[in-house]
Amino acid sequence: MSRVLVYVEHDGEAIRKGSRQALGVAASIGGAQVEALVIGKGAAGVAAKLGAYGVTKVHAVEYDGAYATGVWTGAAQSAAGDGDCLILASHTSFARDFAPRLGARLSCPQVSDIVELSGDLGGIEVKRPIFAGKAFETLKSEAGRLIVTLRPNAFAEPEAGGGGAPEINEIAVPEVPAALQTTVIEVLKPDTEEIDLTEADVIVSGGIGVGGPEGFDTLRPLQKTLGAALGSSRAAVLAGWISPDHQVGQTGKTVSPQLYIACGISGAIQHRAGMSSSKCIVAINKDPQAPIFEIADYGIVADLFKVVPAFNEAIAKIKAS
């Protein structure tokens, strides 16, 4: 029976979506003993909820500070222990930061940002996008200890329910040597609370076709109706119409929402690489030759300024019914 340790990220109360998906992957491995690692303020409260995901033991670190590489790496090392273990985490900014260092400490291999997983420790197979989704590689590992980070939204969310109270193993906040200490001196929150692109279910995205910074205002009502995140093409970012945080593509964010609505985006290979794994792609573009139509599931060849408001109204009606 293999031991699976899931790093569970949270905001003090709720478990992050990507972590819930990672818990689902852990539970799908036949006969696995699922454990979790929870770090931060409110860790004990979050730990208590994890029985519903099939977790039998939680390693909890009550910690009041901001994210710190040394603390997270040390805590994960303690939780992993010495024996065979499959360590799973959603590929978030925290996991991206500590997982490679954990790999060095545990002298075990790591693979990142995977979209499929099968098998069990000793014979695990994963699939991951390379060249930003222009190709997929399958990799196999026979290691008994392994770190795997999972692309947000690539795995289904499990149904939570039942399960007993997990055993709690409290871990003291690890000591970090002075030479390795990173200190957060300021947290800069964005002016408006935008939905994170990588975890969004729906993305409304604009390109050169929106015509200028104010063109994105046409997309905002639709974004709001759908509870979507706002994306953009590289061209719109380079034109200075929208901040780089919104860029989807090979040098921007890679996304896989349920629904991606590309408005006035031609679909350069650079952009397609970042969004082609979306479940359903809608393209609205004046140019019938735009390459975006090659990968879209649905398309409208027309002026987005005429389509989008009517589309928004129709969606609102459906949502209300």
Partner: peptide, 11 residues
Amino acid sequence: AGFTRTGLALP
């Protein structure tokens, strides 16, 4: 190496 590539495919 910890991993070996067993497959490669285009989307």
